[in-house]
């Protein structure tokens, strides 16, 4: 099982610069425990707190390198690399669908032209949310093995389900618009799969 220390470090690797509450949400640890780990990590020079109005925690360069090494070591020790690789493969098939759905949630064609979805047509919105639910089910099926093999990945299952449940209950900002939204959690899962497998995001440029 991933140590609390690595959980906190790796959360910052996947969610970016974030306030304590968001790190805590990503790790599933209490805020007090998360803060304690972050302070230890800061003492080791792996993370830093940037104060200010939007005070937040972020990785240092050393922290990024340490995370890559420790996460990769964890995979090898636990022998879970094939499970993660398989889940990443399935994820890549589903990712374009998620992006289609987020776009359909935000924009909808009027006379053939994409226009902001003003969310006044609840029938349209519920059709989109039905497709989100369908996609979510397929992600859950494809990743069931991953959730079970690595507890820290299982956290995404809870966070995605939570976002979708809230959105379907009427909190529409949980689809794309807040930092706990379905899209943001999915985006972090994407980053986590890449980071865990040590795959850089493909560079722009030409063959």
């Amino acid at each position: 099982m991933t140590s609390a220390n690595l959980l906190a470090l790796h959360a910052l690797r996947c969610i970016g610069f974030a306030a304590l509450s968001r790190v805590s949400e990503a790790t599933g640890l209490s805020e007090a425990d998360t803060e304690s780990e972050l302070i230890d990590l800061a003492a080791a020079g792996l993370v830093q707190y940037v104060p200010g109005d939007f005070g937040a925690w972020g990785l240092t360069e050393a922290g990024r390198a340490a995370d890559a090494e420790r996460i990769s070591g964890e995979l090898d020790t636990a022998g879970t690399r094939p499970v993660v690789a398989k889940a990443y493969d399935a994820f890549l098939v589903l990712n374009p669908e998620l992006l289609d759905l987020c776009t359909a949630w935000q924009m909808r064609p009027v006379g053939g032209v994409p226009t902001w979805n003003d969310h006044t047509d609840s029938a349209y919105d519920s059709r989109v949310l039905d497709r989100f639910a369908d996609l979510d089910q397929r992600l859950q099926d494809a990743c069931a093995e991953l959730w079970a093999a690595m507890l820290r990945f299982g956290r995404y299952r809870l966070r995605l389900t939570d976002a979708l449940t809230r959105a379907r209950a009427g909190a529409l900002d949980y689809v794309t618009d807040n930092m706990s939204s379905y899209h943001i959690v999915w985006f972090q899962l994407h980053e986590d799969l890449l980071a865990t497998l040590g795959i850089p995001r493909p560079d722009p440029g030409h063959r």
Partner: peptide
């Protein structure tokens, strides 16, 4: 962009990326 750019996006007035389409993160 990756999730690591979120705080930059929040601070910026606009964003330009070399890669990706209108249907991208």
């Amino acid at each position: 962009t990756s999730p690591l750019d979120m705080h930059g996006l929040a601070a910026a007035a606009g964003v330009v990326t070399a890669r990706g389409g209108p249907v991208s993160h």
